[in-house]
Amino acid sequence: MSETALARALITRPTLYIFANAAHILSIGVLAGSIILLDLRILGLFREPRLSVLGPFLARSAMVGVVFSIVTGFIIFSVDAVEYAANPAFLTKLGLLVAGIANALALHASPGWRVALDSNEAPVPTRIGAALSILIWISAIVAGRWIGFI
């Protein structure tokens, strides 16, 4: 993969790599900021604004963050795919990314999500999913930082 035109451009023009890395960090910020605020709201940390107003907006924002973090992550991965693919922290991060996305999809497909939007109060299983979400996404960020130390 390191032989693609994109990888060569990032390797031969370090400024491009810096911008790709910065874009990845910004997209993770959008993802984590959105999803953690949504999860804290589901957990009842604050009561306003109503979940029916805040929830869909933050869920869409988190989705944008996920998409951009995957795209920018793939760009960074292309620079040294073989090394990244062998890195346990990278593999852990990928597993957590999949788990976070699966948890979000399950949460939003559950009847509890609709109840939470309609009543402004999340049922216990939905709260458990929100707590799990916070744990997964923070763990994914930690695993991502860990990549450079292995």
Rank of each mutant, 00 (worst) to 15 (best):
Leu96Asp: 12
Leu96Cys: 08
Gly100Asp: 15
Lys93His: 02
Glu83Ala: 13
Ala109Gln: 13
Gly65Met: 09
Ala104Gly: 10
Leu51Met: 05
Phe74Arg: 09
Ala102Met: 14
His108Ile: 01
Leu31Ala: 05
Val30Ser: 15
Leu96Val: 02
Phe68Leu: 14
Ser52Pro: 06
Ala109Phe: 12
Phe57Lys: 15
Leu16Ile: 06
Leu26Asn: 02
Leu58Phe: 07
Ser61Phe: 15
Ser110Tyr: 02
Pro88Val: 10
Ala62Glu: 01
Lys93Gly: 00
Leu51Ala: 00
Ile35Cys: 01
Gly55His: 00
Val79Ala: 09
Tyr17Arg: 10
Val53Ile: 12
Ser52Met: 10
Val64Thr: 15
Ser110His: 11
Ala86Asn: 03
Phe74Ser: 14
Ala20Trp: 02
Arg13Met: 13
Ala59Phe: 06
Glu83Asn: 12
Met63Arg: 08
Pro56Lys: 07
Leu94Gln: 08
Phe74Asn: 08
Phe77Val: 03
Phe57Leu: 15
Gly44Ala: 06
Asn87Gly: 12
Ile28Phe: 09
Ala86Thr: 07
Thr12Gln: 11
Arg41Leu: 07
Ala106Ile: 06
Thr92Ala: 14
Gly33Glu: 03
Val82Leu: 14
Phe68Met: 13
Leu31Val: 00
Arg60Thr: 03
Ala85Lys: 00
Asp39Ile: 04
Gly100Ile: 12
Phe46His: 05
Ile70Glu: 04
Ser61His: 05
Ile18Phe: 10
Ile36Glu: 12
Glu48Tyr: 14
Tyr84Lys: 05
Ala86Glu: 10
Ile35Leu: 13
Glu83Lys: 09
Arg41Ala: 13
Leu107Pro: 01
Met63Cys: 03
Ala86Arg: 13
Ile75Leu: 15
Thr15Lys: 07
Leu31Asp: 06
Met63Asp: 10
Pro49Tyr: 03
Val82Lys: 11
Ala109Leu: 12
His24Thr: 04
Leu31His: 01
Arg47Ala: 14
Pro111Ala: 15
Thr12Gly: 01
Asn21Met: 07
Phe46Glu: 11
Val98Glu: 02
Ala106Pro: 04
His108Ala: 08
Val79Arg: 06
Leu94Gly: 05
Gly73Cys: 08
Ala106Gln: 08
Arg47Phe: 03
Val67Ala: 14
Val66Trp: 09
Ala85Asp: 08
Gly29His: 01
Leu40Asp: 02
Arg13Asn: 14
Leu96Tyr: 03
Ala81Tyr: 10
Leu45Arg: 10
Tyr17Pro: 00
Ile70Pro: 00
Ile42Thr: 10
Ile25Ser: 09
Leu43Met: 11
Phe19Arg: 01
Ser61Trp: 14
Ser78Phe: 05
Ile76Leu: 13
Ser34Thr: 01
Ala23His: 03
Ala85Thr: 01
Tyr17Thr: 07
Phe77Thr: 01
Asn87Gln: 06
Leu107Gln: 12
Leu37Trp: 08
Ile18Glu: 12
Val98Met: 10
Leu37Ser: 15
Arg60Ala: 14
Tyr17Val: 00
Gly65Ala: 15
Ala85Arg: 04
Asn103Cys: 05
Ser34His: 07
Ala85Gly: 09
Leu58Thr: 01
Leu105Phe: 13
Thr92Ile: 10
Val98Pro: 02
Trp113Leu: 05
Ala102Lys: 09
Val71Pro: 04
